[in-house]
Design a protein around this nucleic acid. Structure first.
Lengths: 127, 127
DNA sequence: CTTTTATTTAAGTATTTTCTTATTTAATGG
DNA sequence: CCATTAAATAAGAAAATACTTAAATAAAAG
């Protein structure tokens, strides 16, 4: 039940409503009500999405009288991007040249393959 | 039930076992059995994780006799990284760097405001 | 052929997630 | 004070996840 930070961040990003909220917040901060407005969803549902985003370190909420002003925070996103760069370094030049990767992909070139795995025993059922 | 590509990718990344599998595959491709080996989990469980990673466009499986050789594929990861860069552009490089934001946040100043949402009736219950 | 190896599919269950409606908290404004 | 506004919490239901064991498939090896 105590998920690690990366799982929380990626889990939070795995939902279109939450991503839309983040995109909205990338433009400017907003109150809960303002964030809820575009969605056909009740406030408690949005409130819960915001809780998920907050626990993931993607947003922060500051109290302003009876409103909660939400804004983006770098933490969660930074960690997540770092992890992805590590995995992507397999293709990705020297550790993080996204543009180069995008260019390669657009031109349909996918490279990779090459190294062989070592030998190892297998487990069919339980361990 | 038909999730969008980004949700599939982030959802796939939101699990430590699957991330470990990806990290392993970033070193070299491997068979299902080899991938299962480090985990205290049955083969069907791993098989399902691989299915999730495949549907997310993070890995591909090629048949080699009775084994399935798994390797990373850029698609899913690239899309996910692109999305994150967009959100992160709020702070990030070109659009005002991270340090600037941190400074702004530490000093309690949160910028933004400015645009007003249009006439928005609040919805306490349903919409 | 029959057995072994590698992996998937099927079926069932426990847990988590994502919504809902109803209620509560708490600050503002008359 | 009392009504309104803004949001969170509670309780509960439906669906999705992440496992399990058992059985099926399919190629390789004897």
């Amino acid at each position: 039940m105590v998920r690690d930070a990366l799982s929380l961040a990626f889990g939070a990003l795995a939902d279109p409503t939450r991503r839309a909220i983040l995109s909205r917040l990338a433009k400017s901060q907003a109150t809960v009500g303002e964030l809820a407005e575009p969605f056909d969803m009740t406030m408690p549902a949005i409130s819960n999405h915001l809780k998920v985003l907050e626990r993931a370190g993607l947003i922060v909420r500051e109290v302003d009288a009876q409103r909660r002003r939400c804004s983006l925070t770098p933490q969660g996103l930074t960690q997540a991007r770092t992890y992805m760069s590590e995995v992507a370094s397999f293709w990705d030049d020297s550790f993080g040249n996204l543009d180069a990767l995008l260019a390669r992909q657009e031109s349909g070139q996918v490279e990779a393959e090459g190294e062989k795995a070592d030998g190892s025993r297998s487990s069919t059922t339980r361990k």
